[in-house]
Design a protein around this nucleic acid. Structure first.
Length: 552
RNA sequence: GCGCUUGUAGCUCAGUUGGAUAGAGCGCAGCCCUGCGGAGGCUGAGGUCGUGGGUUCGAGACCCGCCAAGCGCGCCA
């Protein structure tokens, strides 16, 4: 990557300066470069002299001059200049820029890949909604966040595994099973009351009817406990299938669906509890079993086994994370949780370190709340009451691509209001279409070239000399940097902004430079250029899980 | 009360981890179709970056206080 190359050039200059004594041998801060906002300042700029000035007690301008004199000539770089109060500005060579078109074209759908991960194994666990009801829009946000991140990490050279943790044990599932049983009975004209902690949504009624259609009334004759277990199993399977369908509509899929129940059946729960006990992290008190988080600096201890002998969610989550790190040996685990789980993070980190795992290997991202409104009026959301806007309704209204873009374009840690009216309205004039339109326009140009049987494989990219052409190339070259940034910050929203930026630059180029003209040589060169732009746009859209249409 | 997150243009949001003149989309006021897709291009108006201090060559970003919003602080998950 060119960015890395510039950093190396700078590092070399610093090394030489210190060797020759032109620069005191102080510790050199990490060399960073950035894109100046003013294009007159070149393609890359470093404020290294300003930072070195403090440590060396020398004037930043003098340091900058010294370094610039020691930067070796490079085929990529046109000029290196000093600018007050102590910046070093790099400008790239035009021929080098145009040559990049010839390297993007063969890269194709792998364009944008970087080697950061070195095959490190990363697990991304996200959505993981209790299968007690359909997904709603907030879950969609987490799904898109996780899926986009997975795509980017894979592009950065990590081995990524996407996982959905199915909470098929625990009291909430129990309430779901009992609710379903009550609805089942009611549908068969048997007097039954909904449990006090039951789920009231209509989808349970529908589920009960589906089960009756398939299985009839045979569960009525079973003892209640057995009937609930049988119906529960069927309901769970159906609920999971619906969740899977909804996610697939969004283009989100998982490599592993991990069942909470397995932690018990495979003995991992017992194993991890024994480990914690050996480590002295377990205390018995008030008839319950506690994880002594306070020993690790937490505010309070947490119950792992209730006084009735049943494990808490926290307890199984401990076993689950033991499984991730120790049994399955992921180098890094990224969990995406909803904002309401935020209080769970620090005790999870504490318990991970109690198990002897470096807590830095666990990253928990919080996807903030999505509130809903209709035309500015808030919509209350509650799964219990059944008053929810489902993810599926949203997809039906605005389409999967718009959903993907809309959610991915916002940073995870600021909460967002989703105005359903606005989302609909925006779908006619949405950045989604702006970006996809750029791709379709290029496809149209390439179709024209094909119709006219123009073979541009031998196009000479050095003919691309005008400002709109070079700007477009510069923007395409940013994609690997964006992939790198998203990988480092775990903030996929940069991708959405890049997509818009790239599309803007293309549309502007399109207005100023006609591609297919009488000038055969220039036509071929520009066909190569837009071909490369198509590759960059398509890759960006695909990383976001969106389609890159050739026609709209 | 304590913890996490947020506060930037009328609205929705970026701001590359402390750099040069704070940006985009929508909306608003205009302009541009003799040519590859006008779902487009161009110009303009619009900002005490919640607030008060501090750190330094330099702060929207970092530290402290305050204000406001959301979430959390269960033997729920």
């Amino acid at each position: 990557m060119i960015k890395q190359r510039i950093i190396e050039l700078l590092a070399q200059a610093v090394g030489k300066a210190q060797e020759s004594g032109k620069l005191p041998s102080v510790a050199v801060p990490e060399i960073t470069i950035e894109h100046p906002q003013n294009p007159e300042h070149g393609d890359y700029a470093s404020s290294l002299p300003l930072k070195l000035a403090r440590a060396t007690g020398t004037g930043p301008m003098a340091i900058a001059e010294t370094l610039v004199g020691l930067i070796p000539p490079a085929p990529e770089v046109e000029s290196v200049t000093v600018a007050p109060p102590g910046f070093i500005n790099f400008t790239l060579k035009n021929d080098w820029l145009t040559q990049q078109v010839d390297s993007i074209l063969p890269a194709g759908s792998s364009y944008g890949n970087v080697e950061l991960g070195q095959g490190g194994r990363v697990q991304l666990e996200f959505v993981s909604v209790n299968p007690t009801g359909p997904l709603h829009v907030g879950h969609g946000r987490g799904a898109i966040l996780g899926n986009t991140l997975a795509n980017v990490l894979a592009a950065a050279g990590y081995k990524v595994e996407k996982e959905y943790y199915v909470n098929d044990a625990g009291s909430q599932m129990d309430a779901f099973y009992r609710s379903l049983y009550a609805r089942y009975q009611q549908a068969l004209k048997v007097d039954a009351e909904m449990p006090a902690d039951g789920y009231l949504g209509d989808y349970i009624v529908d589920l009960a009817k589906e089960i009756i259609a398939d299985e009839g009334n045979r569960f009525l004759s079973l003892p209640e406990k057995e009937a609930i277990a049988e119906i529960g199993r069927l309901g769970l399977a159906r609920m999971l299938a619906r969740i899977k369908d909804d996610l697939e509509l969004l283009g989100v899929n998982f490599d592993v669906w991990f069942r909470e129940q397995d932690l018990f059946e495979q003995g991992q729960y017992d194993k991890v509890m024994a480990l914690l006990r050996e480590g002295g992290y377990i205390a018995e008190r008030e008839e319950a079993t506690w994880f002594v988080s306070t020993a690790l600096g937490e505010d309070k201890d947490n119950v792992v086994v209730r006084s009735d002998g049943s494990p808490t969610y926290f307890a199984t989550d401990i076993a689950y994370h033991y499984n991730k790190f120790v049994e399955r040996k992921f180098d890094r685990v990224i969990n995406i949780w909803g904002a309401d789980h935020q209080g769970h993070i620090s005790r999870m980190k504490a318990v991970v370190s109690a198990l002897g795992i470096t807590p830095e290997r666990l990253v928990v991202m919080i996807s903030q709340m999505v509130t809903l409104s209709r035309g500015g009026e808030a919509v209350k959301v509650s799964k219990r009451s059944g008053d929810i806007i489902t993810l599926r309704e949203l997809i039906d209204e605005v389409g999967a691509d718009a959903c993907r873009f809309f959610f991915a374009a916002r940073s995870a840690d600021s909460q967002m209001d989703f105005d359903l009216e606005l989302a609909k309205k925006q779908s006619a004039d949405n950045p989604v279409y702006y970006v996809q339109y750029a791709h379709a326009r290029i496809a149209s140009i390439l179709r024209l070239a094909e119709d006219r049987k123009i073979d541009y494989a031998d196009g000479d990219v050095s003919l691309l000399t005008t400002e709109p052409e070079l700007t477009l190339i510069r923007r395409m070259l940013l994609l690997p940097e964006v992939v790198e940034m998203v990988t480092q910050t775990l903030e996929p929203h940069h991708l959405a902004y890049y997509a818009q930026d790239l599309a803007t630059v293309f549309h502007s180029f399109y207005k100023q430079c006609r591609v297919v003209t009488e000038d055969e040589a220039l036509t071929k060169a520009r066909l190569k250029l837009v071909g490369a732009a198509k590759i960059a746009l398509a890759r960006t859209l695909h990383l976001m899980g969106m389609t890159a249409p050739d026609k709209m």
